[in-house]
Amino acid sequence: MNEAADHDLIEAVRAGDKAAVERALADGADPDAAVDRRRASVLIEAARGGRLGIVRALVEAGASVGPFGQFGVSPLRVAMLQAHADVAEHLIAHGALPLEPTRRTSLLTEAVTYTRHRPRPAALAMLRVLLEAGATPLPGEETPLITAVMQPVAPAVLRLLFAQGADADQLRSDGTPAIVVAARRGDHAAVDTLLLAGADVNAGDRQGRTALMHAVERNEQRVIAVLREAGAAVDTVSADGMTALRLAQGWHRQNVQFMLGEMRVGMDDVPIVRTVVRISPVGVRLAGDPPMFRLMASVIDVVLDDLGDDEWAVRSGSSTETARAVAQRFRDDIAPGLHASWFELEVTAHEFAAARSALLELAYGTTPGGVSRLEIVDLLEEIERQLGR
């Protein structure tokens, strides 16, 4: 043991000084010297910093490419977490992949997950290295495609998986097709990418419910549009007797019924078998800047002045008293958010419904006067998106 050389090696690795690393190794430093006796070797430290030249020097000197210390940290996993694809590729070429511990999440599953949590080109490159090296999920883990759809990730990740041979009709471990998983989550981009890769648009889960049925029940209208344009069948009957149209009727979703081809719709009380729980908040907390609150107050004023009390009550289902009260609150009651730079206001569900009705009127009906109709349309669509409508 050459403690002085080991110390020099550790300092050189920390400094990223490749020449000093080589000198310390030539002086007899241990290529497996511990930076932290429980967690990190010098190779792990170099891998974490993405220092490929130093990684090469240490590996050539005989450093172990497997797990280190009592926690089983490996240089390959550290490189993966930091998306240093070139370092990972070098470690894999020297036998690191089969040495990965099996008591943790597989490298491949973590790499797919990281493309969502830390999206960047390097993360995609890291995933490509693992796929090309033949990395696989551990027993009990989902396939990379299902993991990706469940996240959800960017379409570029799905395209990479397809380029590496993934089957677009893969099933989740419970027998649910990938396209159904994506539809349930409202991920229209994933649905479209799966369809372009050859997924069966009418594939069903174990109950025979298709992606279209699940999208209809969840009011995911962008997903519905993608599926309908790809030829999704409207008349498929599930094992429990449901169709996409019947589900739309049971949830009173008139817009969806039109999307499914109906020419006339109503509010019939159609019994259905529901697989979701709809949330109806009794209150809403709004956050924004004072000009946006004043804009919403002005919208209410314009609509009430244009329609009058009776027509407003008929068209909106709320009283003018509620609408005028919330408009006044938008002007007077907003307060700075706690530890935040925005302003906030808590309104009741009825107050919020009145404000939304006014936005609808001004976006598509009432003459906006001095307010930009397109600005109101943008505001309404953003609210609708947040509400999942």
Rank of each mutant, 00 (worst) to 15 (best):
A327M: 09
V13W: 02
A183W: 04
L130Y: 04
L97S: 01
T210F: 08
A88E: 00
G53H: 05
Q328F: 11
Y364H: 15
Q386P: 06
A190M: 02
W312L: 08
A24V: 06
E384L: 09
V371Y: 05
D27R: 15
A148F: 02
V326A: 10
A232W: 10
S173M: 13
G370D: 11
H188K: 06
V347T: 08
T105I: 08
D235W: 03
R37H: 04
E229C: 05
G231D: 04
L245F: 07
I334T: 14
P271S: 07
M80W: 00
H117C: 02
S298M: 13
A232F: 11
L107T: 02
L161S: 06
A85L: 02
H90W: 04
G308S: 11
P290D: 03
R128E: 12
V237H: 11
E384Y: 00
R253K: 14
N202M: 03
D169W: 12
P281C: 09
D86V: 01
L286W: 05
D32L: 04
E100W: 00
V284T: 11
L161F: 08
S316H: 07
A358M: 07
A355E: 02
V326T: 15
H214A: 09
D167H: 13
R278I: 14
V153S: 09
T320Y: 05
L247H: 11
R38Y: 07
D17T: 06
F162T: 10
G283P: 01
L286T: 06
L195A: 02
T367H: 13
A354W: 03
A340P: 02
V157H: 10
R118G: 00
V65F: 02
R389N: 14
V326H: 11
D187Q: 12
P67V: 00
L362I: 12
D305E: 15
G53A: 15
L245M: 12
A133P: 00
S41V: 04
H214P: 02
E132V: 01
E220N: 14
A4R: 13
Q249G: 15
R128W: 00
E346Y: 07
S74R: 00
M1V: 12
V13P: 03
S106W: 00
A79K: 01
A111P: 01
V270Y: 07
V234C: 09
I44E: 00
G365S: 13
A287S: 13
A287V: 12
V42E: 04
T113M: 08
L158D: 03
H84E: 01
R39W: 12
G250Y: 14
L286H: 08
V282W: 06
D301P: 01
L160G: 07
A83I: 01
M292I: 12
G261N: 05
V180W: 10
P271K: 06
Q254E: 15
H90I: 00
I334K: 06
D306F: 11
A111V: 01
H84V: 00
R120V: 03
G250W: 14
A123I: 02
A122Q: 12
R285I: 13
R324G: 09
A133W: 00
V256H: 03
A199T: 05
A133L: 01
R120Y: 04
I179H: 05
T193M: 01
D305N: 15
T322L: 15
Q221H: 08
S106N: 01
A57D: 08
A215M: 08
D310I: 14
P121F: 04
E384K: 04
I92D: 01
